[in-house]
Design a protein around this nucleic acid. Structure first.
Lengths: 134, 134
DNA sequence: CCAAATAAGATTATTTATATCCTATTTAGT
DNA sequence: ACTAAATAGGATATAAATAATCTTATTTGG
């Protein structure tokens, strides 16, 4: 239960790789993909998502590629994971998506809230700097 | 991310209902299913799983049905969830299913272990007695 | 023996995950 | 301007997991 998908796994590998590179070093998608062993076309989609929310910056055309959008100590694992997997939510009732309406005072709800908070907290405390091992 | 499936949601509803019933009260599957608003055939499969590991006891034939396998304060939410959803594992690398072999000292691994422990801990502290609201 | 139950296996439908492909657009360098 | 090198984005394909149903078997009380 609660497993990260391939997409999430690949996303982390890819952006952690960027974090290990010298600051402002523009990296080719093909290089990243082969370095972290992820299908390039898949990684492209993931980095497009990152790019839209500023986690990475992209440069098109010859000499283009990707760079981290902020310094590695300012990007948390939580942001990375939620960017591609969606919000951390052990049950839909904690995302506000109805449910629980079944039962006015659902006794399980607070448990899910607690799980959600704990997990978010753990992931929010880890930065790409931590993960880069530098 | 990390969402409980319908099966898990149904499983909890079903067994919590049992916990709200008088001890040793044998309940009809059809009654449980309609009370907690779950397809009966689906709930049947779930309770079969519960039965195999002793979370509930089943009685076949006329007058048959289901009862909790132990007193509600001795059954944790963790057991219930893992019974139907499999082990809590935010990433396969924490279940021992290879991976991580990619990277001898994976920096993310300890984070997943931490998440796994925290979640398990939270769920293990909640019993069916707590959830029954009695 | 019959009717009421659960057990178990097979099957089906739907959704999500995991990609890949193709075309468009941008950009540096000549 | 032209070309080659890149990313962007939409469409499509395949596989796996989820969600559910159906059918047949087995058990049991009366």
């Amino acid at each position: 239960m609660m497993e990260l998908t391939r997409k999430g796994e690949y996303a982390i590998r890819g952006i952690v790789y960027l974090a290990t590179q010298p600051a402002e070093q523009v990296c080719l998608l093909s290089d990243i993909a082969s370095a972290v062993d992820v299908p390039q076309t898949f990684l492209a989609k993931i980095f497009q998502q990152f790019s839209k929310i500023g986690l990475v910056r992209s440069y098109r055309g010859t000499g283009g590629g990707f760079v981290l959008g902020r310094s590695p100590d300012k990007i948390t694992l939580l942001e990375v994971v939620e960017a591609v997997e969606g919000p951390i939510a052990p049950n839909r009732c904690v995302t506000g998506e109805g449910e629980c309406s079944r039962d006015a005072d659902c006794t399980v709800h607070p448990v899910w809230v607690s799980v959600q908070n704990q997990v978010r907290d753990i992931l929010a405390r880890v930065t790409l700097l931590d993960l880069s091992g530098r």
